[in-house]
Amino acid sequence: MQGVVKVNSALNMRSGPGSNYGVIGTLRNNDKVEIIKEVDGAYEIRFNGKVGYASKSYITIVN
């Protein structure tokens, strides 16, 4: 499943599905991501070869 990031500035990509996990990357508006699955209000995603988590509130599914 594919998604597009929709933010005003940037969205943190984290090592786990919550803000208490470390930041492993930054997503920008209109970045395209692969959605692997939904976990606790976040999506597990793949972006630029990395797998991490981002809030589903800022990712629009575009299948």
Rank of each mutant, 00 (worst) to 15 (best):
M1S: 09
M1R: 12
M1C: 14
M1E: 06
Q2T: 12
Q2H: 12
Q2L: 13
Q2E: 11
Q2N: 09
G3Q: 01
G3N: 01
G3M: 02
G3L: 02
V4H: 05
V4T: 07
V4A: 04
V5L: 03
V5G: 04
K6L: 08
K6M: 09
K6D: 04
K6Q: 10
K6C: 14
V7L: 04
V7F: 06
V7C: 15
V7N: 07
V7S: 13
V7E: 03
V7A: 12
N8T: 14
N8K: 15
N8H: 13
N8R: 14
S9R: 13
S9L: 10
S9K: 13
S9V: 13
A10D: 12
A10S: 13
A10Y: 15
A10G: 11
A10L: 14
A10K: 14
L11W: 01
L11M: 09
L11H: 05
L11Q: 09
N12M: 13
N12D: 15
N12F: 15
N12T: 13
N12I: 15
N12R: 11
N12E: 15
M13T: 02
M13V: 15
R14E: 05
R14P: 03
R14M: 14
R14F: 15
R14L: 14
R14D: 04
S15K: 08
S15L: 07
S15T: 09
S15D: 13
S15E: 12
S15R: 07
S15F: 05
G16M: 03
G16C: 07
G16N: 06
G16I: 03
G16V: 03
P17K: 04
P17W: 07
P17C: 08
P17Q: 04
G18M: 04
G18Y: 06
G18Q: 06
S19W: 12
S19G: 11
S19I: 13
S19H: 12
N20S: 12
N20A: 11
N20C: 14
N20Q: 13
Y21I: 03
Y21F: 12
Y21S: 15
Y21K: 05
Y21L: 04
Y21M: 08
G22N: 14
G22H: 14
G22K: 15
V23K: 07
V23M: 04
V23H: 04
V23D: 03
V23C: 08
I24W: 01
I24G: 02
I24H: 02
G25E: 13
G25R: 04
G25Y: 10
G25D: 13
G25S: 08
G25V: 09
T26A: 06
T26I: 15
T26K: 12
L27D: 00
L27F: 02
L27Q: 00
L27E: 01
L27I: 05
R28A: 09
R28K: 12
R28C: 13
R28W: 08
R28E: 09
R28V: 10
N29C: 10
N29D: 09
N29L: 07
N29I: 05
N29G: 07
N29V: 05
N30Y: 07
N30V: 02
N30K: 07
N30F: 08
N30A: 07
N30R: 07
D31L: 03
D31H: 03
D31I: 03
D31W: 04
D31P: 01
D31S: 06
K32I: 14
K32R: 13
K32T: 11
K32L: 14
K32W: 12
K32P: 07
K32D: 04
K32Q: 11
K32Y: 12
K32F: 12
V33Y: 01
V33F: 03
V33L: 04
V33M: 02
E34Y: 12
E34L: 11
E34W: 14
E34C: 13
E34M: 11
I35Q: 00
I35K: 00
I35A: 01
I35R: 00
I35S: 00
I36P: 00
I36T: 05
I36Q: 03
I36C: 08
I36G: 02
K37G: 14
K37F: 05
E38Q: 06
E38N: 03
E38G: 04
E38R: 03
E38P: 04
E38M: 06
V39P: 01
V39G: 03
V39Y: 09
V39C: 10
V39N: 04
V39T: 07
V39W: 09
D40I: 06
D40N: 13
D40Y: 11
D40M: 11
D40K: 10
D40W: 10
D40P: 08
D40V: 07
D40E: 12
G41D: 12
G41E: 10
G41C: 10
G41N: 11
G41F: 08
G41H: 09
A42P: 00
A42I: 09
A42G: 05
A42F: 15
Y43F: 09
Y43R: 00
Y43N: 00
E44S: 03
E44Y: 13
E44V: 10
E44I: 10
E44K: 13
E44Q: 14
E44P: 00
I45K: 00
I45T: 00
I45D: 00
R46M: 11
R46Y: 11
R46W: 10
R46K: 11
F47W: 11
F47N: 03
N48G: 11
N48W: 06
G49R: 04
G49M: 05
K50L: 14
K50P: 00
K50E: 08
V51Q: 09
V51Y: 07
V51L: 10
V51R: 08
V51N: 06
V51P: 03
G52P: 01
G52Y: 03
G52H: 02
Y53T: 01
Y53E: 01
Y53D: 01
Y53F: 11
Y53I: 02
A54L: 07
A54D: 01
A54G: 03
A54S: 04
A54N: 01
A54K: 01
A54I: 09
S55N: 14
S55W: 12
S55I: 09
S55T: 10
K56E: 03
K56Q: 07
K56G: 04
S57G: 11
S57E: 15
S57A: 14
S57V: 14
Y58D: 08
Y58M: 06
Y58N: 10
Y58I: 04
Y58L: 06
Y58V: 06
Y58H: 12
Y58G: 12
Y58E: 07
I59F: 06
I59H: 00
I59A: 00
I59R: 00
I59W: 01
I59T: 00
I59K: 00
I59Q: 00
T60G: 06
T60C: 14
T60K: 13
T60P: 02
I61Q: 05
I61N: 03
I61H: 04
I61F: 06
V62D: 09
V62L: 12
N63Q: 12
N63A: 12
N63I: 11
N63W: 11
N63V: 12
